[in-house]
Write a protein that binds this DNA or RNA. Structure first.
Ligand SMILES: [Mn+2]
Ligand SMILES: [Mn+2]
Ligand SMILES: [Zn+2]
Ligand SMILES: [Zn+2]
Lengths: 149, 149
DNA sequence: TTACTAATGAAAATGGTTATCATTATCATT
DNA sequence: AATGATAATGATAACCATTTTCATTAGTAA
């Protein structure tokens, strides 16, 4: 019997039932904004409090949350998917700086203003030129972090 | 007994022997610049002329070519890696526009000038701010193509 | 409380990629 | 051209993140 929740209504636009695992997964991601986690890491975190939880449900719920627009999914260097809670604030839009050695992921939001403006310009051009409906973008820089270089 | 090859010297900076499978893979990718192929697709293409070729060797050679800087590797929407021959010309630097419905990948190089300038600016800022050595970037826009929207 | 059925989770399947290892082929040397 | 050291190959099995299957459980409207 899950409880009330700030995001319950948004969730329910995509799915009918509000369940314990769904609440747990969303709460975990919300509790650590700007924390990047894999499905396995989420499973490990929740296993203590919910020993019965299944990895399958984690994957399904993450899909759901991505579709509902509450979290972001991106692919880390080693191929597995990572997830992070998506803040409501536009100003917190950010991109990633990834260390190819240790896998560390740094959020950065320098030049967001300029960047978003530039991105918008490119998107409009691409939409016109290729008759393409642009829905989003992935921008990532990679290299060696402080410790690894 | 593989033959001479334009890139043989560049190849041999990373590895000692010049072999038939290596030549075949490189030739295939060179013959279709701006064509994006998966390891499996490369395997299928080469199988006719080289029925003995192994998928393992394809993966190993692709790694090699990426390390040698002759090809690009990037991850497609469905998780598998794609490869493309990398042109020498700086001016042919491009990014990708991917259809999330049918998987079509469009190369675009609009705004490369501005884009590269902007990227350089960000890279310098990130290097300074996070003491990070930036080695490259991945920039991709996604959405729905002409046919799929 | 009941009934409907969406959601769950254990188990098996999938699929791309990597590791192992006996065999083969390249290439410097003879 | 023949030899030999060993890098490279390829068949096979392993790996591992993710998905599918299906019997069971639990959320919700009535
Ligand atoms: Mn982030
Ligand atoms: Mn391309
Ligand atoms: Zn690092
Ligand atoms: Zn399409």
């Amino acid at each position: 019997m899950p409880g009330p929740h700030k995001w319950r209504h948004r969730f329910q636009a995509h799915v009918t039932r509000w369940t314990v695992p769904r609440e747990a997964i969303l709460n975990l991601l919300m509790s650590r904004p700007s924390k990047h986690m894999s499905a396995k890491e989420i499973y490990a975190s929740l296993y203590r409090m919910y020993p019965g939880i299944g990895l399958t449900t984690i994957y399904r719920t993450l899909d759901l949350l991505v579709r509902a627009g509450l979290i972001n999914r991106f692919t880390s260097g080693d191929g597995q998917n990572m997830y992070e809670f998506k803040s409501e604030e536009k100003k917190e839009h950010h991109h990633h700086l990834t260390c190819i050695q240790c896998g560390k992921i740094i959020d950065y939001s320098d030049f967001v203003e300029e960047e978003l403006e530039f991105i918008k310009k490119i998107e409009e051009s691409l939409a016109r030129k290729h008759n393409f409906k642009v829905l989003g973008h992935n921008i990532e820089f990679y290299g060696l972090c402080d410790k690894c270089k």
